[in-house]
Each structure stands twice: as structure tokens, then as C-alpha cells.
């Protein structure tokens, strides 16, 4: 079952095609990364998913049904451009936002108390937002996003402007909520953040999805047969003769294997030469590398 499904979704602003016939399925219960450079169409996609704007063409299904007003309660959205009413008190503000989501006052109050206890900010109820520090405001912002216990959590650049402590706090909460069944969509242009969090990703560029898959699957697909060997001793002379060396230092070397070459045979060369192997590892491409390569390719094709 998919928590979210886009079927041939397009959206234009005047002549500009921000999202171009996108098909996407996001399975329930995973952490999904929506990646792409600024201006790729991520925010427009998210705004369609959250019902802020409607698609020109195509359908969007949430949990199997086309989006309608009742889905507001199912989605928790933290926009990239975020803010709160500065003059309002923390408690009043959170109650207001929860009630806009359709939650009864009493239930909202109880949940807010729970969350404030969890974040150890129970004594802020009567404080105005403008009296809080930036980091404190971010905690309140996060509570506002998850307060109604959404099925689908959408976070647009959630860590931008966060200090390391809050970043970890929110990462932990994302994992905790995910473990209890919440699906998470994580939109960012910072690839390194995604690698450790997301199970599946899709790459967006110029309104199109150029790559979709699981993290391990994609790395496997784009790996280049590069191995790194860290060793004690001197490099056997057959290695430079038979293999393509990409980089080397006194105690390690990076080797690119040809399709017919075998990694075990490479390791054997070192062992036969009496080297002490400290580390033997396949070097997988980082998301960033895959991204740059793929976007570069897509741009070349369209040029």
C-alpha cells in the first residue's frame, strides 16, 4: 500500500512548467527523500500534496484516495519558509493551529502538554513567541507540525537554520515517529543529510523525476567498481601493471576494476605479496556524486 501516489501530475505557472508529468509511489511507513537543486519543483510538488495548490493535470492519492479536505488531518507539513505569530503565546498558538487542523480543543491541549513535556519546555505555555530564542522557536514549530499525529509527515528543508542540538532532537523524533508507523517525506537539496536518514529517494530536476529508488539499490546501480585497500608494506608491482590506479598514498590505494576483473583476485595480489591488509572496501558513490552526474547528464540531453 502506498501512502502517496502521484499519477501524471503537472503544474505550470504561466509559461513555466514547474512540475512535468510526474509519476511517483511512496510506500507506507518509510522515510522518503525528495531531492533536487533549488528551483527543481520540489516545493511545488509538496504544495500540491498538501493541497495548497491543485495540479493542472494528473491525480494525487493519499492512502489510496484522491486528496480532499479531510486529508488535512493526515498530513503534517513543515514548510521551508516557516514562522509563527510572534505576538501570540506558545500555548494559544499551538491550540489555534491544532484546531485549524480540526482537532477538538481539549484533545489539542492534552497533546500539546505531552509534547512540551517531551521537549522539556512545559513552562513556556504563557510565553510569547517573540520572547523565545531561535532554537526554542524551532521546537515550537516542530510541535505545530506533528501535534495532530499525522500519517504523513512532510518536512521541507527541516534542518535549515537548526543548531546541532535541535537537529539531533528532531532527527530522533523523526525516527521515533517513523518507527511507530508515520511515513515521512523529506525534501532537501543537502544530499549528505539524506544518506543517513532516507530509505528511498527520488531525484527531481527541472520539474521531472530523473531517478527513483532505494538508497542501496541506487548506490549499487551507479557504483563504478572502485575498491580501496589500506595495507602495511609495499604495493605489489603487478597491481599498477594490471589495474587502473585512481589514487594512492603511502599506505592505501584506490583501484578501478574493469568489468572482467574480480575483486577477490585483486585482494589476492596483495596477500601474495605479503602485505598486511587493514581494510578492503568497495567505494560506493555518494548521493551527491550520483546527483551531479545525473543532473549533468539530464542538462546535456536537454541542451
Amino acid at each position: 500500500m502506498n501512502i502517496l501516489e502521484l499519477q501524471g501530475v503537472s503544474k505550470s505557472f504561466g509559461d513555466f512548467r514547474a512540475v512535468n508529468t510526474v509519476d511517483l509511489q511512496i510506500p507506507k511507513g518509510i522515510i522518503f527523500g525528495l531531492l533536487g537543486p533549488n528551483g527543481a519543483g520540489k516545493t511545488t510538488m509538496i504544495r500540491m500534496i498538501t493541497g495548497i495548490t491543485g495540479p493542472d493535470e494528473g491525480r494525487i492519492l493519499i492512502d489510496g484516495t484522491p486528496i480532499h479536505a479531510d486529508h488535512i488531518r493526515d498530513i503534517g507539513y513543515m514548510p521551508e519558509e516557516r514562522g509563527l505569530y510572534k505576538k501570540m503565546k506558545v500555548g494559544d498558538q499551538l491550540i489555534y493551529l491544532a484546531r485549524l487542523k480540526g482537532m477538538p480543543r481539549k484533545e489539542a491541549k492534552d497533546r500539546i502538554r505531552n509534547w512540551m513535556e517531551r521537549f522539556q519546555i512545559s513552562d513556556w505555555w504563557e510565553k510569547k513567541i517573540e520572547e523565545l530564542s531561535k532554537g526554542m522557536q524551532q521546537k515550537v514549530q516542530f510541535i505545530a507540525t506533528v501535534l495532530h499525529d499525522p500519517k504523513l509527515l512532510i518536512l521541507d528543508e527541516p534542518f535549515s537554520g537548526l543548531d546541532p542540538i535541535n537537529t539531533n532532537l528532531i532527527k530522533d523524533e523523526i525516527h521515533r515517529m517513523n518507527a511507530s508507523g508515520t511515513s515521512v517525506i523529506f525534501s532537501t537539496h543537502r544530499m549528505e543529510q539524506v544518506e543517513e536518514i532516507c530509505e528511498q529517494i527520488t531525484l527531481v530536476n527541472k520539474g521531472k523525476l530523473i531517478l527513483t529508488g532505494t538508497m542501496t539499490g541506487l548506490k549499487d546501480q551507479f557504483k563504478k567498481n572502485i575498491f580501496k585497500i589500506v595495507f602495511d608494506g609495499s604495493m605489489p608491482s603487478v597491481v599498477p601493471a594490471k589495474y587502473e590506479i585512481l589514487d594512492e598514498q603511502r599506505d592505501w590505494v584506490k583501484v578501478k576494476l574493469q568489468p572482467e576483473q574480480d575483486s577477490n583476485a585483486l585482494l589476492a595480489q596483495f596477500m601474495q605479496a605479503g602485505c598486511q591488509i587493514r581494510l578492503f572496501q568497495e567505494v560506493l558513490p555518494t548521493l551527491n556524486e550520483i546527483f551531479i552526474e545525473q543532473v549533468g547528464e539530464a542538462n546535456r540531453q536537454s541542451a
Binding site: 498538501t50 495548497i52 514548510p79 519558509e81 516557516r82 514562522g83 509563527l84 510572534k86 493551529l97 485549524l100
Partner: peptide, 10 residues
């Protein structure tokens, strides 16, 4: 205050 997008999602 950048609060619109949050409200508009509700």
C-alpha cells in the same frame, strides 16, 4: 512572519 504556508496547509 512566514506563517502563511503553515496555515494554508490547514
Amino acid at each position: 512572519n512566514r506563517i502563511n504556508e503553515l496555515i494554508i496547509s490547514s
